[in-house]
Amino acid sequence: MTSQPAAMAQILSLALTAFIMMLAAISFPFLSLDAGGLHNATSVIDAILAFNDGYAFPLAIAVAFFIVVIPLVRLGALIYALGPLVREQKPRQGARKAFGLAERLRPWSMAEIFIVGVTVALIKVAGLAAVTIGPAFWAFAGVVVITVLKDQLICRYSIWEALDQSTD
């Protein structure tokens, strides 16, 4: 068992790392494809915009939320709520709301499912063309691994208690 303040510091640093890696994952090239002299590079944003034609547009928005927006909001809310606790200061205003939001969004954050989807897609394409994996792929995979570690460290009831005690 890690002691509580130490665990919180670890959670905060993992959340910060994941947040920055997620920003890297959406800015760098994700995958690129070469076949017959033609080349096509894809970023995570391009994958979201794949549903950009007409009837599927709402799905593009939903996918954007599932794989980028919601994971970022969860991490941001967690950093906001836990930051002062680690420094043993009074929680920020709305810290409890922020943590509540992060908890409620949890089932809708699908970064890890996206990575499995990418793996399946890679295997489907592998036979047909040469696929190059870009830095954003590794950044995204990093986000997933770090998020799993972070979620394992979090004891939500201890955090609720810590947020509760220090606002009184």
Binding site: L33, T42, A47, V63
Partner: peptide, 10 residues
């Protein structure tokens, strides 16, 4: 997500 990636990539 498989569909999203495939349609963006290919």
């Amino acid at each position: 997500f498989v569909v999203a990636i495939l349609s963006a990539l290919v």
